[in-house]
């Protein structure tokens, strides 16, 4: 793994961003990401999580403010130039929210080969990496398949594989667990855990608060006004019900099970029939918060 523990990977300074002809969707956002950190980005739908990840990946550029990667400002000119551009692309992997956008090759194998081939690695090296990555994610049997024809969970795994094959040191993950069944979800969490112990820096956008403690050591909360309103460890942030209510991440029906805040994003149409996606103990189920 390149870089030393604790160095600043991303420095985000007073970033403001708006899509062409649209109102601001990031308003004065500042924070640092340190090497080896597991950071979660939470916020309601449309608060700007995905947009912020795109900016960190150098796909969009801030209108105002700066983003630096390892001290070098991320600009279009810098990213177009070798050796910084290719190195940045190899070191920083981005798992898109929409797997369909991420998978564009005719076979899973070609999908995994895409990044390494762009880096100019030898065929032998590319094959070796593909082999290992497919085995790691338990998707060797999908090797010759057409990515668009896979299930949502399989697509997610192939997309993750297409990033890991490049041996990145930073992963930007946009809603990685959305749409996965419990087994795929825990497999993914296990893999992320393993990568984290090997020193990878993880930045995850999510609104699944139940998974936060497994995904992050630090949580940033984006408000619907597109500002950062909290930055801290998961426990205190999750305990701040008032703040979570204010940013519309939870609503009045939310209650706590043990140390987890359990939210019900408006999935239930029939009055108060709880759909629990994850298995955990309901110790104090009888005390809904007012």
């Amino acid at each position: 793994m390149s870089g030393s523990q604790g160095e600043t990977v991303f420095a985000v300074e007073a970033v403001r961003f708006a899509y062409a002809g649209q109102p601001l969707c990031l308003d004065g956002v500042s924070f640092d990401v340190r090497r080896g950190e597991r950071l979660a980005l939470v916020g309601a739908n449309g608060s700007g999580k995905s947009t912020l990840l795109h900016l960190l990946n150098g796909l969009f550029f801030p209108g105002e403010g700066r983003i630096a990667y390892l001290g070098s400002p991320l600009t279009e000119a810098v990213l177009d130039a070798a050796p910084f551009g290719p190195r940045f692309r190899q070191e920083v992997g981005f798992l898109f929210q929409n797997s369909d956008a991420q998978l564009f090759c005719p076979t899973v194998e070609d999908e995994l080969a895409f990044g390494p081939l762009q880096m100019g690695w030898t065929q032998a090296e590319v094959f070796r990496r593909i082999e290992d990555t497919l085995a790691l994610l338990e998707i060797s049997r999908l090797r010759g398949r057409f990515p668009a024809g896979l299930s949502a969970g399989e697509k997610k795994r192939v997309a993750l594989a297409s990033l890991l094959v490049l041996a990145p040191s930073v992963l930007l993950l946009d809603e990685p667990t959305a749409g996965l069944d419990p087994r795929s979800q825990s497999l993914l969490l296990e893999i992320l855990e393993a990568l984290h112990t090997r020193g990878l820096t993880l930045v995850t956008a999510t609104h699944d608060l139940t998974l936060l403690p497994h995904l992050a050591d630090r949580v940033l909360v984006l408000s619907e006004e597109h500002r950062l309103v909290a930055d801290g460890e998961p426990e205190p942030v999750l305990a701040d019900t008032e703040m979570l209510l204010a940013v519309n991440l939870i609503h009045a029906h939310s209650h706590r099970h043990g140390r987890l805040v359990h939210t019900h994003p408006h999935q239930h149409v029939v009055a108060h029939e709880h759909v629990h996606g994850h298995h955990h103990e309901h110790e104090d189920q009888a005390e809904p918060k007012k």
């Binding site: 992997g93 929409n98 956008a101 991420q102 564009f104 895409f114």
Partner: peptide
């Protein structure tokens, strides 16, 4: 919008405009 997203995904994995193939 999806095709634009695909382009971003390609750039994100180091695409510089050259077609490179496995097993040329």
């Amino acid at each position: 919008s999806l095709a634009d997203a695909v382009t971003l995904a390609m750039v994100s994995r180091g695409f510089t405009g050259e077609v490179r193939l496995l097993r040329p």
